[in-house]
Simulated scan of single mutants.
Amino acid sequence: MSACPTCNCRKPLGFGIKMAFQPIVDIAKKNVFAYEALVRGENGEGAGRILGQVTEENKYTFDQSCRVQAIETASRIKLPGSLSINFMPNAIYEPETCLEKTLETAKRTQFNRNNIIFEVTEQEQVVSQQFLVEVFEAYRKEGFKTAIDDFGAGYAGLNLLADFQPDILKIDMKLIRDICQNKVKQTLVRSIQQIGEELGIQLIAEGIETEDEYKYLRDSGITLMQGYYFQKPMLEAIQDVNFP
């Protein structure tokens, strides 16, 4: 495979990007498990507006820039615990080479690489599932944790789990919405819980917005959660979480 192209990782698309951070909470320990870095525009513009400008030509540079910006900002605001970064597998040329900027940034900012989680959405159609497995394995070799986002809603699903078991599965918010009233969703989430338990994979329920959703998941034994119910993403900042 060819090496990654050279690029200016700080201003990839002709506009600036910033990062917002949303906590992933551990309701059993009453602390923050990690913060997910979410891309925003320079003036706080939403992710949709930014991602809408990503093309085949600039996606590699965009992906690299998001990693650098997330780590630099997390270091600057003294982000406690782990940092979860979304990555675009179709933007990667060769896993080890494409990690060089990430490793350099972590070293330069003194951000512990063992506190970095790389997550990929299950909804992204990767060119090759085997290549995605190679990417995950390369990341794990360097000490990064791995996660599959939106699990239960996309293209990879159980086929990917058969080839690679990530550290974390994030249960898709569509399965979480109104789960307290939907027996089908309850059954599906219980199945995912069983998979996680038997394979030694941590589960995060994402997209929690109501007290009823929170209470149902809590009573079901899920302890890692993320969503507006706890805190909305904050631009280049964090604050104490008000635990229920």
Rank of each mutant, 00 (worst) to 15 (best):
F33T: 10
N43H: 05
E122H: 09
E42D: 15
L132V: 05
A3G: 09
Y155Q: 14
K101P: 00
R113A: 00
I77D: 05
F62G: 07
D178G: 07
Y214V: 00
Q53F: 03
R49N: 09
K11A: 03
V127A: 13
K232C: 10
C7G: 07
E134N: 12
D150G: 03
L175K: 07
E124T: 10
V189C: 12
K174A: 11
L188W: 01
A74V: 01
G46P: 02
I92S: 04
L132N: 09
I50S: 04
R113M: 00
K78M: 11
P166V: 11
A156S: 07
K141M: 13
T73L: 09
I204G: 01
P166N: 07
E119Y: 07
V127N: 14
V39I: 11
R140N: 15
K107W: 05
F243C: 03
L203H: 13
K232L: 07
T97K: 10
A156N: 13
A28P: 01
D150S: 07
R108N: 04
N58G: 00
N242K: 15
G152F: 05
G207F: 06
L83P: 06
F144N: 06
S128I: 08
L160T: 01
L169Q: 03
L38V: 09
Q110K: 13
A162L: 04
Q231C: 10
F131M: 02
P12T: 11
I195Q: 06
K141S: 15
F15Y: 05
R177G: 03
L199Q: 08
I17R: 10
K107P: 00
V68R: 07
G152L: 06
K101G: 01
T61P: 00
S82F: 14
T6E: 15
L51I: 03
I77H: 05
A138Y: 11
K174P: 00
T97Y: 13
D240C: 02
Y216A: 12
Q123W: 03
E142H: 13
G200N: 06
P95V: 04
K145M: 06
G81Y: 11
I77K: 11
V184F: 13
V184L: 14
K18S: 14
R10A: 04
Q125T: 03
L217G: 02
K183T: 13
N159M: 14
I24D: 00
K107E: 02
D63K: 10
G46S: 12
D178Q: 15
V135N: 09
T109E: 09
Y60M: 07
Q239G: 01
G227D: 02
I77Q: 12
Q194S: 06
D163M: 14
C7D: 01
A205P: 00
V135Y: 08
P244F: 12
Q226C: 06
D212A: 15
Q202L: 14
G46T: 10
